[in-house]
């Protein structure tokens, strides 16, 4: 029964993959951009380690790895602006999603998992491979860490989707959705550890970041990959990601359902 239930999600995911695979030029452009920024960020971050040493548990090798890994993961997990759902709400196209016997957020999540797979293959892995060829990166110490990293990436995608869904759902209430979106993206970029590792933050700021769901989108899988988080800490990290995933999905669903209640579809 659970398998039959997941069948629909699998079908959505397949179409999510196909939808993004249908635009190879956009994917190629994205890959190119990711790679160029990978070089820039790697060189900038390396400058911090001129005199050797460690910052927040990151040494030189871990930092280079961080730079390339985040470059690959950012597209896969999609921490950047996403407006697909908000646009459907604002144009009223959401009406066509509501007449389906499937919750639009469930369909959206499954679709996004398919998208992330497409992005992982074509925009995620290549920059990391290029980075490892040019700079050399540290890789997980064993299959258990690889597995934990994979799980962590999966959870990061769910957390990211739920967060994106929340600021998109705001379009039910807000006419000025642009401000909210910019704020949400900026917060996600900074606190997720995409700009610099969360461990590099001054202490109060790091404490704030750790209290938000953002590190669960990016920093956690990276920390597991480079071994900064190891052993029992990995389990705790995965558990906190899972908790954020559930919490944010519930929040997004609650907000979405509230929004639908007061839905006014324009025009027609």
């Amino acid at each position: 029964m659970p398998l039959a239930f997941l069948r629909l999600d699998l079908e959505y995911a397949k179409r999510g993959y196909a939808r993004y695979a249908a635009y190879p030029a956009a994917t190629l452009a994205g890959l190119f951009t990711n790679t160029v920024f990978g070089f820039m960020r790697a060189f900038i971050l390396l400058a911090l380690f001129e005199g050797g040493g460690e910052i927040g548990g990151y040494d030189r090798a871990a930092t280079v790895t961080y730079a390339w890994l985040t470059q690959g993961l950012a597209a896969t997990i999609f921490i950047w602006g996403w407006q697909d759902l908000g646009l459907r709400i604002r144009t009223g196209d959401i009406a066509t999603d509501l007449i389906r016997p499937v919750h639009p957020l469930r369909a959206g999540l499954a679709f996004d998992v398919g998208r992330s797979l497409c992005h992982a293959i074509f925009r995620g892995v290549p920059p990391v491979v290029i980075g490892s060829l040019v700079f050399g990166i540290t890789t997980p110490s064993g299959p258990a860490v690889w597995l934990a990293f994979g799980l962590s990436c999966g959870l990061a995608i769910v957390v990211s989707y739920a967060f994106r869904a929340i600021y998109n759902v705001a379009s039910f209430w807000l006419l000025d959705w642009r401000g909210t979106t910019i704020l949400a993206i900026t917060a996600a970029n900074f606190f997720s550890g995409f700009v610099i590792p969360v461990a590099f933050f001054p202490l109060p700021l790091e404490a704030i970041a750790r209290a938000t769901p953002f590190p669960a989108m990016l920093q956690v899988p990276v920390d597991i990959f480079v071994g900064r988080v190891a052993g029992a800490e990995v389990v705790a990290a995965l558990a906190s990601q899972l908790a954020w995933a559930i919490l944010l999905l519930l929040a997004a669903t609650w907000l979405f359902d509230r929004g639908v209640r007061r839905l006014v579809v324009q025009g027609g």
Partner: peptide
């Protein structure tokens, strides 16, 4: 939703970027 069919003249219900048959296949599962 399972008992009704709806077509809004000026809204696109098919998946815009996918071949037509893919929309139908997805609807089969939905």
């Amino acid at each position: 939703a399972a008992r009704i069919g709806v077509m809004f003249g000026q809204r696109v219900q098919l998946w815009w970027d996918l071949p037509l048959i893919e929309s139908f296949e997805l609807l089969r599962h939905i």
